[in-house]
Every structure is written in C-alpha cells, then in structure tokens.
Design a protein around this nucleic acid. Structure first.
Lengths: 129, 129
DNA sequence: CTAAAACCTGACGCTGACGTCAGAGGCAAG
DNA sequence: CTTGCCTCTGACGTCAGCGTCAGGTTTTAG
C-alpha cells in the first residue's frame, strides 16, 4: 500500500505520514523509484501514533517509547521504563482534570438549559394569555 | 490584588494573564496609573480558564462559553448550548481515548518490566554461578 | 530620596505538528 | 503517448499560547 492509501485508511494526511517518518516513528519500504510502500500493520501503527499525540506526547517522547512497543524483549531500559511511568502518571492527572472539566460543563449545561426552558415557558405562556 | 499576586496564586505567568485579558476571558479594574487590579474571584476564574485550555478548548471557544458561566440567566442562547454540548461530547471522546491510551501504557509497562526483571534475574544468577 | 521591584504597552521570537507550494518524476488507462 | 493522478524532495508558511526584550512609569522598602 502506498502513502495515499495509508492516509485514507488512517485519517492522517500524507504530509503527516512523511512527518512521522522524519521523526523516526514510522518506517516504510521503498520502490526503486523511491516511493514509500507500507504493510497492513502500518495502519495500526499510525493509529497508535495519533493516539499518543492526542494524549499530549511529543515526537521525541513517542520515539523513546516505540522500541519498547516494537521489541519489548530487548529494548527495555530503566530509562524507558521511567519515561513510560512518568507519562502514565501525567496521563492519569490529565484524565482527572478532564473529568473535572466535563463535570463542570455538565453542570453548566444543566443550569443553562434550565434557564433556557424557563425563558421559553415564560415567553410561551405570556403570548397566548 | 495586582497581576503578580494573581500569577503567584494561580500558577499562570503574568504574560498569560495579560493574554487572557486580550482574548476577553479575564477582566480587571484599573488604577489611575493603568495598573490591573483583580478581585479574589479572579483566582477561580483563571483556574477555570486553565482547565478549559488544557481540556483542549481554544480562546475563541472559551470566550463563547464564558457568558453562560457568568450570567447563566441571560446569556444562554441555543447556539451556546450547542457549543457546550459539542465540547462536552468532544471531551468525552477525548477521555475515552486517553483511558485507552493509559491502558495500553499500563500493559506496556507491565510486560516491559517483566522482561526487565527476567534480564536482571538472568544476569544476577549467571554471574555468581 | 532613591534604588529595587513590579507594572505598563508594544512588538518580535519561539515551538511543534503539520499545511502548502514549487518543480520534477512515476504509473495505470485509453 | 499523453493525460491525469499519485508521489517525491526540499523549503517556507501557519497558528496558538505564550516567552522575552525594549523602553518607560509606578509602587514600595529602606
């Protein structure tokens, strides 16, 4: 599969895929004319990358973790374990904050829609009377 | 309270506070010499702003929600309700993704540290024998 | 009174994850 | 064989949320 197809299947842009390769996060075979060729597993890889990016990791951090993902048997150093645990803790904190924020939004929506209903009711009963 | 004190109490930088004001997210009284003066409630306001920022909202989106926060009685339009519900849905999706990512990280850490223990054990039992 | 610390308004700088354009080459269809 | 789409490698552009510096005023401590 070539880069356009991979882009379609993952939702990432072609530019983004090249960028991932540039950052050492995604590798590709090349044809004799230098076109990138990906295996089917690249789809999952890209989805993993996007998940990690949206989780707030940057390219360098992701790059430091990928060896553990790819070869958990060899590439596990104390440092990479440390990075993973740090990021996990950061993630947990972030999740807690997002949950709090969501609760606040929920509260906001409830009180706001209550007010809104009141306004509508008032308007509604005020007109026909 | 002046801007430096507010910065201390919230953890935001002075520059960030001025930026929030510039974006219409934070208002201040002014002294005759144009220095900003904040009430005690500004602390909570800034914390709310930072939570919303780290939840992935941008200045414009936050600005569109703040009227509902400040005056839920008047400023609630159908559009702002829509914005809030959209953002809440986005937040929920994001939380789900982060939970998934955290689970993957947890799994990674477990298998990796298991391998790492194996290596240590092997090295440890290989030397003294 | 004075020096340090805090504050003000511009305005340019930075960073990361891409977008976008230029200019050139590849590849399947008719 | 050529038309149209895909791909390639640079390389510059963008955008948001600030950082930072300049050049000047204000407040506070001694």
């Amino acid at each position: 599969m070539r880069i356009g197809e991979l882009a379609k299947q993952t939702g990432a842009s072609v530019r983004a895929l090249r960028y991932y390769e540039e950052q050492g996060l995604l590798s590709a075979q090349r044809t004799s004319s230098a076109q990138r060729v990906y295996g089917a597993d690249a789809v999952e890889r890209v989805r993993l990358l996007r998940r990690l990016y949206t989780a707030g990791l940057n390219s360098a951090t992701i790059a430091s973790l990928l060896p553990c993902v790819d070869r958990p048997s060899e590439a596990v150093t104390l440092e990479s374990l440390d990075v993973m645990q740090r990021e996990r803790a950061r993630l947990s904190d972030q999740i807690d904050e997002l949950l709090t924020t969501r609760d606040q939004l929920t509260y906001l929506i409830e009180t706001a829609s209550a007010f809104h209903r009141d306004q509508l009711d008032t308007a509604h009963t005020a007109v026909p009377a």
